[in-house]
């Protein structure tokens, strides 16, 4: 479904609900639109089930944009998706501990598991990046094992340290910078997720695997322990 939503944006909705095949399909749609080389294209913002296309309204109007995008969207829905094979795998090391994950013990108690089991379940799933947003480089990854899914904190923390790994329902993410945040924190990742030169490390459609690391490895990789 393609709908105009404002004077310079159109929203393409691919499915009514989140599923694990969507990130790859959306990444493939982004790729097809980019390759078409439209001179009026300004930006594309993928999210869980949608792709927002931003265009230059001086060059084209919403009818022209819709007409150009329709065949591309149609082709994608009929031919299936080949992007699955090409999608990138990114490994993120995480130091899970009480000192870097102030909610780890709480989550373990809440789930009726011990901390080791929470860590095992969080790091044994291959995640998909479903969306980017909230802050530069903040990647929403899914899906977390239902046994360790946890709601956001009722009162968000004023300051979450950079690199913090959190869970909110069945999503997980790494906070790229210090920011306020309401996710349940279980560890910290020393990898930089956003910098001004390379921009966001992760993009929608990427596969992500998490490797638990020791305190020493975390520090050696440049991780910081500040609360």
């Amino acid at each position: 479904m393609i709908e105009p939503v404002s004077e310079d944006t159109i929203l393409i909705t691919l499915a009514p609900a989140i599923d694990d095949t969507l990130p790859a399909r959306i990444a493939s749609l982004v790729d097809s639109i980019r390759r078409a080389g439209f001179h009026w294209l300004v930006d594309m913002v993928p999210s869980y089930t949608t792709l927002m296309v931003v265009y230059d309204p001086v060059l084209v109007d919403f009818r022209q944009v819709t007409d150009k995008l329709r065949p591309i969207v149609h082709r994608l829905s009929t031919q299936g998706h080949t992007a699955e094979l090409k999608s990138r795998l990114v490994e993120l090391p995480v130091y899970y501990s009480a000192e870097t994950g102030p909610d780890l013990q709480w989550l373990a108690t809440e789930s009726g598991l011990d901390c080791e089991e929470v860590i095992r379940r969080h790091s044994s799933v291959e995640y998909r990046v479903h969306a980017l947003g909230f802050a530069p480089g903040f990647a929403f990854m899914g899906q977390v094992d239902p046994s360790i899914a946890a709601p956001r904190k009722t009162t968000p923390r004023k300051q979450v340290p950079a690199g913090s790994v959190g869970i909110a329902n069945r999503q997980t993410a790494v906070y790229p910078q210090v920011s306020p945040g309401g996710w349940q924190l279980i560890g910290r990742c020393p990898t930089r997720l956003f910098d001004s030169t390379n921009l966001s490390l992760l993009k929608v459609g990427d596969r992500v695997r998490i490797t638990p690391i020791s305190r020493e490895a975390f520090l050696a990789a440049g991780g910081e322990l500040m609360p």
């Binding site: 310079d8 944006t9 609900a17 999210s47």
Partner: peptide, 10 residues
């Protein structure tokens, strides 16, 4: 709703 792209002026 499921999070989606926000247009300027939404």
């Amino acid at each position: 709703i499921i999070s989606e792209g926000i247009a300027h002026g939404s």
